[in-house]
Simulated assay, not measured.
Amino acid sequence: MAKAAVIILAGTDGHENLGRLANGLEAAKEFAENDDDDLKLVFDGAGTQWIPELEAEDNDYHDLYQTVRDDTAVCDYCSSAFGVEDAVADSGLVTLDDHDGHPSVRSLVDDDYEIITF
């Protein structure tokens, strides 16, 4: 059994960030497809900007995102800092604010999750 925390930090600007998002979602999907694995997908920093994009059904990565959506959470502080707090709230996704308004990476490490960032 693998325990993986995939953290998307890439923002929405530029082709390279789109590639990082796609690779992060594919990595998350690989863990999600294995019933023995435990996945946490976290959108943090500029990565929070992807939520309104991915929630849109016409987005090229919407279907891929839907395969891992149940394992997804978003940084509370960063969703506000990057101006997407309303879209995150509308999405119904869990927000994390364990450490000064941000997700606690230490808690993930303490719970034996491998941290993978994109």
Rank of each mutant, 00 (worst) to 15 (best):
A2M: 11
A2V: 09
A2Y: 03
A2G: 02
A2R: 09
A2W: 03
K3Y: 00
K3R: 12
K3W: 04
K3L: 05
A4Q: 01
A4P: 05
A4F: 02
A5T: 10
A5E: 09
V6S: 01
V6T: 05
V6L: 01
V6C: 02
V6F: 01
V6R: 03
I7L: 10
I7N: 12
I7T: 08
I7K: 06
I8G: 13
I8W: 13
I8E: 12
I8K: 12
L9W: 07
L9P: 09
L9T: 13
L9V: 10
L9Q: 11
A10F: 14
A10N: 15
A10K: 15
G11E: 11
G11F: 07
G11K: 07
G11S: 06
T12C: 09
T12Y: 08
D13I: 10
D13A: 13
D13S: 12
D13V: 10
G14A: 12
G14V: 12
G14D: 13
G14F: 12
G14R: 13
H15M: 02
H15S: 02
H15W: 00
H15Y: 01
H15C: 03
H15Q: 01
H15F: 00
E16L: 07
E16Y: 02
N17S: 03
N17R: 02
N17C: 00
N17E: 04
N17V: 00
N17A: 01
L18M: 10
L18W: 11
L18S: 07
L18D: 10
L18A: 12
L18T: 11
G19C: 01
G19Q: 03
R20D: 14
R20N: 14
R20E: 14
R20P: 13
R20H: 15
R20Y: 14
R20L: 14
L21Y: 06
L21E: 09
L21A: 05
L21P: 08
L21T: 10
L21D: 03
L21Q: 07
A22S: 07
A22W: 04
N23T: 06
N23E: 12
N23R: 09
N23I: 11
G24N: 11
G24K: 10
G24Y: 11
G24I: 10
G24C: 10
L25P: 04
L25Y: 08
E26S: 02
E26T: 09
E26M: 11
A27N: 06
A27I: 04
A27V: 09
A27C: 09
A27L: 05
A27Q: 09
A28H: 02
A28D: 02
A28N: 04
A28G: 05
A28C: 10
K29R: 15
K29A: 15
K29P: 12
K29D: 14
K29G: 13
K29L: 15
K29S: 15
E30W: 14
E30Q: 14
E30V: 15
E30R: 15
F31C: 06
F31T: 11
A32D: 00
A32K: 01
A32H: 01
A32T: 00
E33F: 02
E33W: 00
N34S: 01
N34C: 00
N34M: 06
N34F: 03
D35W: 07
D35M: 05
D35L: 08
D35K: 11
D35Q: 08
D35N: 11
D35C: 06
D35S: 08
D36C: 09
D36S: 10
D36N: 05
D36F: 08
D36W: 06
